[in-house]
Design a protein around this nucleic acid. Structure first.
Lengths: 332, 332
DNA sequence: CTGTTAGCGCCTTCAA
DNA sequence: TTGAAGGCGCTAACAG
């Protein structure tokens, strides 16, 4: 025997047929106890490991999941991936990570490549082009969307309650007595961005105020966009700002710091998403945190049950956010 | 035809043999131009995609690489992974990400599982237990070590010049006139930790000073460890501290901030590794940055050439660090 | 230059 | 309950 031992080697060693070895190793019922023991022992002494390539070819599937996220630089997504990975490993799956960089074309390329790889399940934070996701679904693959709701496609989806989170953050600012509260949200094509904006407006209305367009901005969910939006907003003289994701919050803070605008004395800030080391930024940053790791685990669970029961109607799981009030939004 | 079209379907459609289809699709030389065109066309019209499971079984390899890193929460490693991934994709490989969490047992479990998966290449930041890596090498897999030198094993390795980086950082502190310079480094079993400590001491000696044990601490390369080491150091009254990784730097800053110790007036700080948003921490943090993305790309290149030429003698690539001086270590 | 053929290692009927 | 045999889709010898 030259390479890794095969099921034939084990069979010979145990004095049984390959079929029996296969049955034992796959836990099929109704194999004689004595044979089972012998097979187990032979497998152990030979150091047999099933060749997953052959198994997968035979079963025409793999134990691989692919996670296609839209920004690896965003700690939000990497935390989610960790949740997926841990849960996936428990269920016997390995996870391949792909970064679409929020570009539909890059996403499309991944989809095409991965389709050929018999990947058994996909977890995707969809870019705006739903066609990519549809291709996966049409090819009969199990797919779970995270973070965003894919437009016009019924899918297992894990979201957080963006509207609630934004509303709570804004209500807190109102509560602290801020008068001119601004909002920097993401691209309007992304459901997260519009939901967070909606929550912002809802809180204002609930307090008897009217949302003012001059205090609202759309940017790109990245640091630079947050910086520019904040610069642009400055003319409107807000005394507080709710920023709809972590990277843009960092950008907005950067602008304020560059201009020597004090937080929270001149402008209070609350950010959506956790910012790593939020407590280190001076002043410590108030945030609406999302249960990122949980989100990943939930997506993994949904994916597994979709694989086991492809006909099941789609589920949408919505997780709660949590407001953490810190110094950046507290009146002295 | 019910499922995906196979190479036989294409062959029939194009009126050639499966072998010819295979040759065309794999770009083998010397196939008649007319046939080539016909095969290409048939494949296109049928929407043929090669089944990589079958191909891999036949070739008994995969187009998968596994990256086993020791801490997914550390932005250093995630940045490296990005470099690996981008380069890998260019070379036709997908990347599976695994997190050993600095635990040899967890690493061992991954190694065992992945060995069965015919993964074609491994990039590993080894934990202290070299046996795990040795298992990969013994099984004939292509392996590249990153960040740390695996003890007692000749391997393709990508490192940064830790000693130089630490020395430069320390020299800068000396230059600024600090007198009692402390060092918080990592676990002594990790080469990165000991090299950075060595660089620190070398700089002191070069300035005619003697390293004092009471100003040196080993911690665990995590935030909490940095916090505790700083707390412990405080009694020795340092006026500057060089912290040998990013997470511990954050921990040390946290302690200083908790105690109201001003940076850099009372204690100056330089950290090794980039800290995301280093510019946001007040005061902006001086850092020794590593070329993380480049490190990943280099590892990918080495891995590829190891796969192509398994007999090649091992290469050790050492990349340079860069000192970025910011306010946290500047005398007023 | 092209086609025929024999597996890669496993699982799963089918028959005994 | 166990064994024999075929085939998943592809590629690499080997013939022609």
């Amino acid at each position: 025997m030259v390479g890794m031992p095969t099921i034939y080697d084990v069979a010979r060693h145990a004095g049984v047929s390959p079929a029996t070895v296969s049955r034992v190793l796959n836990g099929h019922e109704g194999v004689d106890a004595a044979l089972t023991a012998r097979v187990r022992e032979s497998a152990a002494t030979l150091g047999y490991r099933p060749n997953s390539l052959a198994r997968n070819l035979r079963r025409s599937t793999t134990n691989l999941w692919a996670v296609i996220i839209s920004d690896v630089n965003n700690p939000f997504f990497t935390a989610v991936v960790r949740g997926v990975e841990d849960a996936g490993q428990d269920l016997g799956y390995s996870v391949v990570l792909c970064n679409s960089d929020e570009q539909p074309d890059k996403e499309a390329r991944y989809v095409t490549a991965l389709l050929a790889d018999q990947i058994s399940g996909f977890i995707v934070s969809p870019t705006s082009r739903t066609a990519n996701i549809r291709a996966l679904v049409d090819a009969g693959r199990a797919v779970v969307a995270i973070d965003r709701r894919p437009r016009g496609l019924a899918l297992d989806t894990v979201l957080v309650d963006n509207e609630h989170g934004a509303r709570e953050a804004t209500a807190h600012l109102i509560d602290q007595g801020y008068e001119r509260i601004a909002c920097i949200t993401g691209p309007s094509r992304l459901s997260t961005a519009s939901q967070r904006l909606r929550g912002f407006r809802a809180a204002l209305r609930a307090a008897g105020r009217t949302p003012e367009p001059e205090l609202e901005r759309h940017a790109d969910f990245r640091e630079r966009g947050g910086y520019e939006a904040m610069a642009d907003l400055a003319a409107a003289r807000p005394d507080a700002v709710f920023v709809a994701n972590n990277l843009m919050t960092v950008g907005a803070l950067e602008f304020l710091s560059d201009k020597g605008i004090r937080v929270p004395d001149e402008v209070a800030v609350v950010g959506f998403d956790d910012v790593p080391w939020a407590t280190f930024i001076r002043p410590p940053l108030s945030t609406v945190t999302q249960p990122t790791y949980e989100l990943g685990r939930t997506a993994a669970t949904l994916l597994k049950s979709r694989i086991d029961d492809p006909g099941r109607p789609p589920t949408v799981a919505t997780l709660r956010t949590e407001l953490h009030v810190r110094a950046s939004s507290r009146r002295r």
